Amino acid sequence: MEPTVPNVPVTLKDVAVASGVSLSTASRALDERGTPSQSATAERVRKVAEELGYRRNAFASNLRRGQTRTLGVLVPRLSDTVMALMFEEIERAASSRGYFAIVATSGDDPNDERKAAETLLDRSVDGLILATSRIDDDLPKYLREASVSHALVLRTDGVSPSALGDDEVGGYLAVRHLLDLGHEDIAVVTGPAFTSTGTARLAGARRALSEAGVTVNEQWMLSAGYGIRSGFDAGQELLKKKSSPKPTAIFAANDNLAMGVMAAAKEHDLVIGDNLSLVGYNDIPQSALLPTPLTSVRVPLEQIASKAIDLIVDPSNGQEVRKFMPTLIPRASSGKPQ
């Protein structure tokens, strides 16, 4: 029986020797961080590396530079469609810049969020991207004081680097659309009071009502969670038979809330788009595929993700807070009052 030959990995030195170049020249030719050199020497080195089956150890290389080219992303939960979409965009944007993104979930508890952040930092990530959303969150302040590179997405505390949609403008666009259709009896279902998204979208809705000279019915300004069940409960409260008058239109501060309102409307024999107009927020893919397609405010997640990566990898951005313009997407769920 022939002796087994151990599978010895090909090293950078092997590639350099086989290519007839120095170790540093081989390293530069195989460095994937920038635009690859098109010189004949670099092309030869890459061809030899491929023939030998060389695989660059990027992790070890980056550790020598004090980097891992890895970014940690912290989200409340990946069962939330917007959070999942946001992470996918961050992952794509990171990859295009030569980084790898890993995700951790934290729920809504600040202590759990801090533990999740520390877990990511223990993995020696080069920076943190936070999609968590509490206004009273001390984590960004802690990261600033500890000089940890970070950026907030879909939210801002007004201090840490942030990339988000302009939620106040989005709330304004949603309610302005209903007002332009002729509605005045408009209810608003916002997210939790501890979220910057919920408070900003409500502020935009109130501004639109005020500009139109419509008196706000405070009983129709409801704060809820961001799930479908929360939207259903809020819809039941607004549409219960004993209440009079009832709203002819509802702005729900995310699409899950809007879908919950749709379910409540059905129980009260109301037809969305006819008896009751409805506008959601975020324009998740399901919105256009509902039995009554949902009018929604679209947020440019791709731009937000790209900017968040820039805020971390380019120190010249400083403490920039960048807001991107949302867009109203009208569909069948919003119609004129009967």
Rank of each mutant, 00 (worst) to 15 (best):
D180Q: 13
D180F: 00
D180H: 06
D180I: 10
D180M: 05
D180E: 15
D180N: 14
D180R: 09
L181I: 10
L181A: 07
L181Y: 02
L181Q: 07
L181R: 01
L181S: 07
G182F: 06
G182E: 11
G182H: 08
G182D: 11
G182S: 10
G182Q: 10
H183Y: 07
H183C: 11
H183N: 10
H183E: 13
E184F: 00
D185N: 12
D185I: 00
D185P: 00
I186T: 07
I186H: 03
I186L: 04
A187P: 02
A187C: 03
A187N: 03
V188M: 04
V188A: 01
V188W: 03
V188Q: 02
V188S: 02
V188P: 01
V188D: 03
V189C: 05
V189G: 04
V189T: 07
T190P: 05
T190S: 15
T190V: 10
G191C: 09
G191W: 03
G191I: 05
G191N: 08
P192D: 08
P192K: 05
A193E: 15
A193I: 15
A193Q: 13
A193M: 10
F194Y: 14
F194I: 15
F194P: 01
F194T: 15
T195C: 04
T195H: 05
T195W: 01
T195I: 07
S196T: 15
S196E: 14
S196D: 14
T197W: 09
T197R: 07
T197C: 11
T197N: 13
T197Y: 09
G198S: 07
G198P: 06
T199D: 05
T199R: 06
A200G: 01
A200W: 08
A200M: 12
A200E: 15
A200T: 06
A200H: 11
R201H: 04
R201E: 03
R201Y: 05
L202I: 02
L202W: 03
L202F: 06
L202A: 08
A203T: 13
A203Q: 11
G204E: 11
G204R: 03
A205Q: 06
A205V: 08
A205I: 08
A205C: 08
R206F: 13
R206C: 10
R206Y: 14
R206Q: 14
R207S: 10
A208V: 06
A208F: 01
L209R: 01
L209K: 02
L209H: 01
S210A: 14
S210E: 15
S210K: 12
S210W: 12
E211D: 15
E211Q: 14
E211A: 14
A212L: 07
A212D: 06
G213W: 04
G213P: 03
G213S: 05
G213R: 04
G213F: 05
